[in-house]
């Protein structure tokens, strides 16, 4: 839209100006003392109950530890075992394909729902609660429901597909091909409420006058979203994407309940953490379990670095 072009430039200039005044950058001295005081309570808890445990697993990953007898040093042996286990690579692939599907879909849908619910419409409180419901519904009961939805003999989806004349509908949880899509649908359903609530909060920092000014300048809804809303909420989006990516890579509970603890058929829905859980709590092989955790770390770390590098192109900080 031609007439709007100058205004967009104006907005971008104004935001660029703000961006250049990043916190503290105009000051020469650092805030070291204040930083220590502000960080101390958080750091103590972080150190004792997060960092120690995490470092512990790193050390354990180089040992053989069956929980009972003292750990014995193995060096890189556990990592070599993992690399040589076809099941490990299968769960890496499963987890990655789950993540690649669930993160973009649930983030986009969550954002759409948040945009819809950010309007002052009658009944929004009820709708906001309803869309959050999947995220809080107790997993065991949600899984029972979804097992029925996916059932090939009597389920909701396949009955409907039969009605439409589909003669051979997917067997969902009873097919090594369709089990993962079923898990993805379940995952998206559950995740929407989470990204929605974060986006709702994020949208509040988009100044209404800015949107109104854009409207006056003739921007349509999409242009307003592209040039104002999306840049303003990009730190929230980054947060949602990173947390959802980590959460998806750590998928366990949902796959466990949906497949009655079997991750089937034939490990088609098994995940990295499912694999890790089996090692830790069934085989009592904490060394390999910890090595799996650190393999997960390396994978997510790489994914996060890619996201953080990519963010320079789309995330704008105030």
């Amino acid at each position: 839209m031609r007439p709007f072009a100058p205004s967009i430039e104006r907005l971008q200039v104004s935001m660029a100006r703000r961006r250049s005044s990043r916190p503290g950058e105009h000051r020469k001295r650092g805030d070291g003392r204040a930083a220590i005081l502000f960080l101390l309570p958080d750091f103590v808890g972080f150190f004792v109950f997060t960092l120690l445990g995490v470092i512990g697993t790193l050390v354990i990953s180089f040992t053989h530890w069956d929980l009972v007898r003292a750990p014995t040093w193995l060096g890189l042996e556990n990592y070599r075992t993992l690399a040589g286990d076809p099941l490990f690579w299968q769960v890496v692939k499963n987890t990655a394909s789950y993540t690649v599907a669930v993160v973009p879909i649930s983030t986009a849908l969550g954002l759409l729902v948040a945009l819809g619910l950010n309007r002052r419409l009658p009944g929004t409180v009820v709708l906001r609660t309803a869309y959050f419901a999947p995220f809080i519904t107790t997993l065991a009961s949600a899984a029972l429901m979804w097992q029925w939805i996916f059932d090939p003999n009597r389920g909701l989806i396949d009955s409907y597909l039969y009605m439409l004349g589909v003669s051979n509908p997917p067997a969902w949880l009873n097919s090594s091909v369709w089990a993962m899509p079923a898990l993805i649908i379940f995952g998206v359903w559950r995740q929407i409420g989470f990204s929605m609530v974060l986006f709702l909060a994020g949208l509040q920092s988009v100044p209404r006058p800015l949107l109104e000014a854009a409207t006056v300048d003739g921007a349509n809804a999409w242009q307003r979203f592209r040039s104002v809303t999306f840049p303003m909420i990009s730190p929230t989006t980054l947060f949602v994407v990173i947390i959802s990516t980590i959460g998806s890579f750590q998928l366990f509970d949902q796959a466990f309940v949906l497949t009655s603890g079997r991750f089937g058929p034939d490990n088609a829905t098994n995940t990295l953490v499912g694999y890790l859980y089996q090692k830790a709590f069934v085989d009592l092989n904490m060394g390999e379990a910890s090595a799996t955790a650190w393999a997960l770390f390396i994978i997510i770390f790489a994914a996060t670095i890619i996201q953080l590098v990519a963010q320079r192109r789309w995330v704008h900080y105030e």
């Binding site: 067997a171 009873n174 097919s175 090594s176 079997r262 089937g264 058929p265 034939d266 089996q278 069934v282």
Partner: peptide, 19 residues
């Protein structure tokens, strides 16, 4: 035993699903 059992059970899934 529980390890062996899990391994066989996983492979048998495809027999139960008819695959």
């Amino acid at each position: 035993w529980s390890d062996v059992s899990n391994a066989v059970a996983a492979a048998l899934d495809k027999a139960w699903t008819g695959e």
